[in-house]
Amino acid sequence: MSARTKARKRALDMLFQADVMNTSVMDVVADEAKRAVGEPDRVASWLYAREIVDGVNDHREEIDELIASYAQGWTIERMPNVDRAILRIASWEMLHNPEVPAPVAINEAVALAKEYSTDDSGRFVNGVLGKIAEHAAS
């Protein structure tokens, strides 16, 4: 598993935790930063996970508006917490990280959805992110 794949999982954990516990993302990041000090072999994944979470936090309004507009029949609040976090991560990568091609962001997000969410989540995440990728390319 690549460092970026591990970082996406770590970012998912942080965003999910903040969402479920209804706490600040920055508080969760601070707790994870303390843990990361004791894990020098995971520095690469920690740095990118932090970049993702900071980026999602900084651009949350824009990202959520796009997700809501392309998730037909689903409000942000009604989505499963895991799906919401996955969509935010991949949306940030497609919109704000030119190093990550849209197909890579989508494939990684679909893999996370299939592993950590419902049976239908992979297809749902793929559909929403495909539309966001089209939007980002225009």
Rank of each mutant, 00 (worst) to 15 (best):
D41H: 09
G55C: 07
V82H: 00
E65S: 09
E51P: 00
W92F: 15
R84W: 03
V29N: 05
G38V: 07
S69W: 03
R88A: 14
R50G: 00
I106T: 08
R50M: 02
S2Q: 12
K131M: 08
A105C: 12
D120N: 12
K114S: 07
I52L: 15
E115W: 01
S91P: 13
L129C: 06
A7H: 08
D13T: 11
A85G: 09
D83M: 11
R35F: 02
A7E: 03
V20D: 01
R50Y: 11
L112R: 06
A102T: 14
S69H: 12
V125S: 09
G73P: 00
A44D: 12
M94I: 15
N126C: 02
D27H: 03
R4Y: 12
R88E: 15
I76S: 04
A11W: 08
S138L: 02
R88V: 08
S69P: 00
R10S: 05
W46P: 00
L95I: 10
M79N: 04
M14L: 13
Q17K: 11
A90L: 09
S91H: 08
E51T: 10
H59G: 00
R35S: 07
V25D: 07
G38E: 14
A102D: 15
M14P: 02
L66W: 06
T5F: 13
S69N: 13
I106Y: 04
L47A: 05
A36V: 08
A3C: 01
R88G: 13
D83A: 14
E32W: 08
R10E: 12
R60S: 06
T75P: 03
Q17H: 02
A105L: 05
K34Y: 05
I63S: 04
A49M: 05
G127F: 02
E99T: 11
M79C: 03
E93F: 04
M21G: 01
L66I: 01
A105I: 10
A11I: 08
D31V: 07
G127R: 10
I132L: 05
V29E: 04
E115Y: 07
L12T: 06
R4A: 07
S91V: 04
A90P: 14
S91T: 15
F124M: 13
M14T: 03
I52Q: 09
A49Y: 04
M21S: 13
A102N: 14
E61N: 06
E115Q: 15
L66P: 03
P80F: 06
K9H: 08
E108T: 09
R50C: 01
K114P: 01
E99Y: 09
V43A: 11
L129G: 04
N97E: 14
S2R: 13
A109Y: 09
A90F: 10
E61V: 15
W92G: 00
A113C: 12
S24L: 11
A136K: 11
S24I: 09
D19A: 02
D54A: 05
V53I: 13
L12F: 13
V43I: 10
N22V: 02
A49W: 06
E39C: 02
A3F: 07
I86V: 14
T75S: 15
L87D: 04
M79K: 06
T5V: 13
E115A: 15
H135K: 12
S91A: 14
K114D: 15
A105K: 05
A7P: 06
K34H: 04
P101V: 14
T118H: 10
S121V: 12
N57K: 05
L66E: 01
A136S: 13
N22W: 01
D119Y: 06
A85C: 06
S117F: 10
G122K: 11
V25T: 14
N22G: 11
